[in-house]
């Protein structure tokens, strides 16, 4: 009631200003929801391309998900099994995370808690630079530099394999883990730190006993976003993993990932053919995987807020 009175007493504003503000508000609202529209539209279009094969009678979902035999252009016996590709994606991502999580979280802790102001600014700039390197450049580094190192220092016959792809992906997801992890640590109130120090904790005890438990949800979200980055990466893994349809027996084996497979084959698949539709279905599978990862991350973040 009081608010309305105030508004009535205020001198009225010109009509154009009111209208302009309304329009601006509309535009901003549009920008806000555009992401939802785009995601929904992309999902719809991908699904529309994949649907005819998904509901067709020549297609077996079980074979698609669980068979390792990927023969999309076979003359005698066409088979669309993506299991080896899924295993490829998962194994490369898993290795990337094994490398990236300790490095990323360690760097986040260092940047947030241990280093001085100037050092922190420098480090943040350099880490952001790391995330600005295009993935094709990473792929090229994997193909030329890393593969030679791997052949020279391990027993691997070929340098393009899970290890190569995993290291490259780790380097690509570390910046995300560091910046989000650092935000999570910064979000822990200073009163926690002061209380810890007042009780006589050393800096390490403070990090280990106070900050990590307090920020654990945010750190988990950082890791999961790093996973999302690694699963979805295409160009670098296409160049660095060897592109072999194969269930790997060790980290020195070559694999092919879902993303790389789509990138390599979509160009030639005739529009509307079974192969084309199955590739879109592979896209849906990938979408499902990244959606699950991102949803988990989001739920975890919500978990923090509730606390």
């Amino acid at each position: 009631m009081k608010k309305r009175l105030e508004a009535m007493n205020r001198p009225s504003r010109p009509r154009w200003a009111v209208l302009g503000e309304k329009m601006l508000e509309g535009v901003i609202r549009l920008c806000g929801i555009s992401a939802i529209v785009f995601v929904a539209a992309i999902l719809l279009f991908v699904f529309r391309e994949a649907a005819p094969i998904l509901f067709g009678d020549r297609f077996h979902l079980k074979q698609f998900l669980l068979s390792v035999e990927w023969y999309p252009t076979s003359v005698s016996n066409v088979r669309y099994g993506t299991f080896a590709l899924t295993v490829g994606s998962v194994s490369v991502t898993a290795l990337a995370m094994v490398i990236a999580v300790p490095f990323g979280l360690g760097a986040a802790i260092f940047v947030s808690e241990f280093c001085g102001r100037r050092m922190r600014e420098t480090l943040k700039i350099v880490i952001e630079l790391l995330s600005a390197i295009p993935s094709v450049v990473w792929g090229f580094i994997g193909l030329t530099v890393m593969s030679k190192l791997i052949v020279a220092y391990t027993a691997a016959p070929v340098g393009v394999n899970i290890l190569n792809g995993g290291v490259i992906l780790a380097l690509m997801s570390v910046p995300i883990i560091v910046s989000i992890g650092e935000d999570a640590l910064k979000a822990v109130p200073d009163s926690y730190r002061e209380a810890g120090l007042a009780l006589g904790a050393t800096r390490w005890q403070l990090v280990y006993r106070v900050l990590l438990p307090a920020a654990k949800n945010g750190l988990l979200a950082a890791v999961l976003l790093g996973v999302g980055r690694a699963v979805g990466e295409t160009m670098a893994v296409l160049m660095a993993t060897g592109h072999a349809v194969h269930i790997p027996h060790g980290i020195l084996d070559s694999v092919r990932t879902l993303t790389a497979n789509i990138a390599a084959e979509l160009g030639e698949a005739p529009v509307g053919s079974d192969h084309y539709r199955v590739l879109f279905l592979t896209g849906l599978l990938l979408f499902g995987i990244t959606f699950a990862v991102n949803l988990t991350a989001e739920l975890v973040v919500r978990g923090i807020r509730r606390k």
């Binding site: 390792v68 035999e69 990927w70 023969y71 076979s74 003359v75 005698s76 016996n77 080896a84 070929v158 393009v160 296409l238 060897g242 592109h243 072999a244 349809v245 194969h246 070559s254 092919r256 390599a264």
Partner: peptide, 13 residues
């Protein structure tokens, strides 16, 4: 003879 390749070869671009 138009049969399929053994899986696990490195398929380069």
């Amino acid at each position: 003879d138009q049969k399929d390749f053994k899986l696990g070869s490195l398929d380069l671009n």
